[in-house]
Structure formats: C-alpha cells, structure tokens
C-alpha cells in the first residue's frame, strides 16, 4: 500500500479543490492577521485536532507527518525569544536579550506556525494534484497549458531523480567529482547535464502535447468532471466552524490573557 493514500474519505476529500484552495488561503490570511496569543494558541489546537479527525489518515501516520511541527515551532519561536525587541528584560548576555514581550511573542509565532502547518497539511492530505488542476481548469478557467504543464511535471520528477542517481554513479566510476575543488565544479558536473537533459525532454514532451492539442482553451472536454456538491458546503462549515470555535474560545476562556503581540500595532 502506498503511504500517501487515505484510509477513509471525509467531506474535505470530496469537496471541490477549486473552492477548497481559496478557503484555505482565507484561513491562512485569517491566521496571519491573528495578533493575540490566546487566539493563535486555540487556532493551533483546533486545527491540529481537525487534522487528526478529518485528514482520513490513521493517527500514527498523521502524527508522523505532524512531528515536523515541533521543529517548526522551535525555529520560529527561538529567534524571536532570543533576539526580539522588548522592555521587561528577564535575562541578557551579549547580543542575546530575553524579555517578557519577546518570550510571549516567540511562543505566539510558534503557535501560529503550528496552525499554518496543520492547515497546510490538511489541504495537502485531502487534495490530489490532478483533482486540483482539473478543478482549476473547469471552475476557475485556468488555461489548460498551465494545468497540463504542472501535471506533466509531476510525472517528469522521478526521471530527474533517476538521472541524478545515474550521474552520481557515473562520476563515481570515473573517479571525478572528488577532492577539495569538487564543490566548485558542482554546477558543471551536476547542474549542467541534469538541466540540459530535463529541458530537452520537456521540449519533446511539450511538442507531443501541443500536437495532441493539450493547450486548446475553448470548447474542450475533460476526462474528470469537477462538480460543486453539498460536500463543498459541508467542508466550508467544518473549516469556518473550527476557526470560529477557536476564536470564541480565545475570547471566552483565555489561557494567557495578553493583548496584541506587536510592539506598536
């Protein structure tokens, strides 16, 4: 069984990607415009919970994928905690100064990064690339030449990786690409042949696609239908409800009770 295959389908899987993508972009903007730590804390919790419930993957897989959030949390918050502006200094040494403001702002940035990650992973796990581009072509009038190019590129990816492997082996057999100057010769030894091959292959593929009329815009038919259904409404309610619940909890049951996290909002 392949790793990226949901074990069950949820409303989010069945929703039309052309609606789902804008919905997630709105969620992203909403999270970016969140400046209170209580709100960001609850947004992170709510979307993490939704990720586990609605991604359609078994919990252990979701947990494995979400484990990267710990690193994102640390890298987002540490710089802010150590080097952020603030007046209530707790501890300082050389360029490092930890203040109360920068500490909580660091946590806030960390919570936001978990919220972003959960939303992003939820979108990625419930949407297939093919479904997304067929929906964008049919619902949002994306020109087929872009849609089919992007879809074709996913199929060309394994070939590029294969070529990288062959190139590495070939250089190893010839004994080149080692020694102290190998880093300087990296563009010539790897980037040039890989790019040249890929560009030529892309051109051949594109010419074949043009001949087969993949770029015709008007009055074309599609292999997959991409309808708007009640699932879209359900997905909208689910996402909007989660965001609203998080913001209501932040108002009614604040954990930190602090105001805007910026110095001069």
């Amino acid at each position: 069984m392949k790793f990226f295959e949901p074990s069950r389908e949820t409303w989010l899987h069945r929703a039309n990607p052309a609606l789902k993508l804008p919905l997630f972009v709105v969620l992203f903007v909403l999270t970016v415009l969140t400046h209170r730590i209580d709100a960001s804390f609850y947004l992170a919790c709510a979307f993490l919970l939704l990720l586990f419930c609605a991604s359609g993957y078994p919990p252990w897989k979701t947990a494995l994928l979400a484990s990267g959030f710990a690193l994102a949390f640390a890298s987002a918050s540490l710089t802010m905690i150590l080097f952020g502006k603030g007046s209530e200094i707790w501890w300082s040494l050389g360029p490092v100064s930890i203040s109360e403001e920068s500490f909580y702002r660091g946590l806030h940035v960390g919570f936001r990064s978990i919220a972003f990650g959960s939303q992003g992973l939820l979108l990625v796990l419930t949407t297939s690339s093919t479904g997304l581009f067929y929906a964008l072509m049919q619902r949002l009038k994306l020109s087929p030449k872009y849609a089919y190019s992007f879809m074709a590129s996913i199929r060309l990816m394994p070939m590029a990786l294969e070529e990288l492997r062959i190139r590495r082996d070939a250089l190893a057999v010839r004994g080149t690409g080692r020694g102290s100057f190998s880093l300087m010769r990296l563009p010539e030894l790897y980037a040039l042949p890989l790019l040249a091959q890929s560009i030529r292959r892309a051109q051949r593929t594109a010419l074949a696609m043009e001949v087969k009329r993949f770029d015709t815009g008007k009055t074309r038919t599609y292999f997959y239908a991409s309808p708007i259904t009640w699932n879209d409404f359900a997905a909208f309610l689910l996402l909007a409800g989660t965001a609203a619940a998080a913001l209501l909890l932040a108002n009614g049951l604040p954990v930190f009770g602090l105001g805007d996290m910026r110095m001069d909002p």
């Binding site: 074709a152 590129s153 590029a160 892309a202 594109a206 696609m209 043009e210």
Partner: peptide
C-alpha cells in the same frame, strides 16, 4: 506569447 512548451520548460527548470 507563452506556449505550452515555454510553460513546461519553465516548470521543469524549477523542478530540477
């Protein structure tokens, strides 16, 4: 204008 070839080559350059 941009043809399908241009777009696909651009996308593949990004891919590499």
């Amino acid at each position: 204008g941009l043809t399908l070839t241009d777009v696909l080559v651009t996308v593949v350059v990004s891919l590499v």
